[in-house]
Design a protein around this nucleic acid. Structure first.
Lengths: 247, 247
DNA sequence: GCAAAAGTGTTCGGTATACACCCATGC
DNA sequence: GCATGGGTGTATACCGAACACTTTTGC
């Protein structure tokens, strides 16, 4: 039920309670140099001044949490708004521990974004600095952001199993080797190349071949065919992790 | 990032912005008479006076959203607090559309609860009335609760595939027929009994046999052995829906 | 006996897995 | 040539779907 709950006085005074602030936090992942990276910003103010944290900020009075997340993402990364509008953004969960911010009551809606390898983020914006950090090498983060980041990592690992989400890590046109890299990097396991190829190509709507000059290379070796993300969003049947632990 | 965002003034005034209210909404499901039921309450105040809605209410200044959800659930159903403390409660997602409540800015954290068949809820508590309603026969609900309910149904359907969640719908001791009923009711499909039995029994930690007098019956037919929920929380491999659509 | 639900067994086909092998490129 | 990665083929094992059959109860 939305405010006011049945049984509460009719003319509920919005200022009667200690106010809640509502923020968004973003766990933005990318794959770089065969490693999973996270976008972090350095805090310019107390508390946690100088500490690294997830990008994010206040939800403004006239925007939804998702709109706030896209706005903050654009501000922090320097991406064009129309690029951000097309990114895969997923609500992770909401963190509402009463003591998670030392100053006041802050409820934060966390989002996860998966992006292809992007240019280095501008140091400007809302944060003192911003950078891509290899996942696992991030020191202690501000607030409860360590926990949010861990939850986000677990979520995307599970989502790769039964959705087409992996293509969100890739540029518009990609090789099957690059797509396999995504799975291997996020899961931290090696996959059998021939079987991975068959699995992806036989799943309707996962990827579609690009007609043009069907070649390109990441380094040496045989040039690979190019593919685009397909129309499907779910994988049936799922692509399970070898020693699958999920959700 | 939590408030205030880096770059905002140091001494952020909690009252500077139009305040947000934070509520919880609960989609409580049970299986009754081989049908999926939802717990609804009748609103006693405007707006939507007389309309049915999901139970829920305000998050208090010193409690987390989950604590608020358990408190509201106990109030609405009349369950003992220690019973509610053991129930499976899962955060669904947060709804933050600026116009979702006509009076003020309300951000609501939705939870899903799966409960065994419970006694009729007391009409008292915060709501004018409360009742179990067969899923799908609920008229238009207040606010955006129709959408929340649909999201919740989709979520639990998907969760049954790869978690042991179905046991949460069952009493402490149950037959495999009752467990199968849960799947058939939530998914709306018929499952092959022998195959379902094998699948459940060969999944380590899903259920464990009860030693005692291994019989009991729901009506006529051969008495069935009793089982308890096991220690596992995830299913490997998953138990996929016949014409599986997921997530 | 008959209906209904539990429980066991067996067949069949698809899919995943683990390989072996060839192809095309850079050096 | 050789290393590297792309792409194809194939044999085996496993798992799920389908279904026949027996058992135990209520009526």
């Amino acid at each position: 039920m939305t405010a006011p709950a049945a049984g509460r006085p009719e003319g509920y005074d919005p200022y009667a309670f200690e106010p809640f602030a509502v923020t968004v936090d973003l766990a933005v992942f990318t794959v770089r140099d065969e490693r999973l990276h996270v976008l972090l910003v350095e805090r310019g103010q107390e508390p946690f001044r100088g500490a690294w944290a997830l990008p994010g900020g206040f939800v403004l009075p006239q925007e939804s949490a998702e709109q706030a997340a896209r706005r903050e993402l654009a501000e922090e990364t320097g991406l064009l708004p129309r690029t951000v509008a097309g990114l895969h953004l997923e609500q992770l969960r909401t963190y509402s521990d009463p003591d998670r911010d030392p100053r006041m009551r802050v409820v934060s809606v966390a989002y996860t974004a998966l992006v292809p390898d992007l240019p280095e983020p501008r140091g400007g914006g809302d944060a003192a600095r911003a950078r891509w950090t290899p996942y696992g090498t991030d020191g202690p983060l501000a607030f409860d952001h360590e926990r949010i980041l861990a939850d986000a990592h677990e979520r995307i690992g599970a989502k790769l199993e039964y959705t087409c989400l992996a293509t969100a890590f890739c540029p518009p046109e990609f090789t099957l080797g690059e797509l396999r890299q995504v799975y291997e990097t996020v899961w931290g396991v090696a996959l059998d190349r021939p079987n991975f190829r068959r699995k992806v190509l036989t799943t309707p709507g996962f990827v579609e071949a690009v007609e043009g000059p069907p070649r390109r290379t990441g380094g040496r070796g045989k040039p690979a065919a190019l593919y685009r993300a397909g129309a499907a969003s779910a994988l049936h049947p799922p692509l399970l992790r070898p020693e699958g632990r999920s959700s």
